[in-house]
Amino acid sequence: MATSSKRIPIQKTYKLYIGGKFPRTESGRYYKLLNTQGDVIANVCRGSKKDVRDAVVAARKGFGEWSKKTAYNRGQILYRIAETLEGRKAQFAETLCLQGMKPAAAMDEVMASIDRIVYYAGWCDKYQQIFSAVNPVESSHFNFTYPEPTGVVTIISPLEYGLLGLVSTIMPAIASGNTVVALASDKFPLTAIELAEVIQASDVTSGAINILTGHRKELLSGLSNHMDVNATIYCGNDKEELASIRSNASLNVKRVIHHDFKNWSAETCQSPYMILDMLEMKTTWHPVGN
């Protein structure tokens, strides 16, 4: 084993996740991620507005294939993400610790994240029934309403709960066939990109999930004013940020979803109504007669 003691460990470069690929930010910019002692633990891609636009293009491209999959198949794929993550629990807990968490809390968060993915995997082929209706119209028509995905959803994920927050906002969006562009927390970029690696290994359509790292303040406008985005999820409690997102969203009538949960591991942070937030209802009229 003489050679192993001389071996230099390979340092990992964390990149972005766009269209099923792991590119560096087109801007070439990085920010230094520090641990609690103030030491640099990684250089993290500081994503740009152009990266946001590229990710939205990838998400729109992925929408056709991802939304066309059968509900059951989407459920299987979400379950597959959970399976893959289960096998990498230790790695994720370690990376959360590296970013400043205590070991027990880190492992709790990883397990809660896996359970949340399984929760939404189960809903993939069930939310349709509870949100559909056959409407009792007066005239002689068979009239029914059912949900369809709204399209491309951008996510400004929670600043805390680096893994669970990301999972809790991405999963209800993709469960129905939406595609997403998610911005990771400035403080937890490493687990976000490791999650991207898990997703990449889980049969998710390329472009269905895109994950960016970078500064929230800088990327907020690009994520909310893009004309080919249908909904924006904002997690946080900064009134100015929320107001600017609402104003940007009005440009093309985006749906704005606001979450301000303090504890993302609570059961109240998972619900089929969080799937409903990103659905459109289609009503069809068919004549009944000879």
């Binding site: 009792p136 309403t145 093309n252 289609k282 009229w285």
Partner: peptide, 24 residues
């Protein structure tokens, strides 16, 4: 991609039938 589709009919409305649009 639209909120209401009339099939072999057109412009029917009813208070029990949801009305509203997709996109903009």
């Amino acid at each position: 991609r639209a909120g209401v589709i009339w099939a072999n009919t057109y412009n029917k409305f009813d208070p029990t039938s949801p009305f509203g649009g997709y996109k903009e």
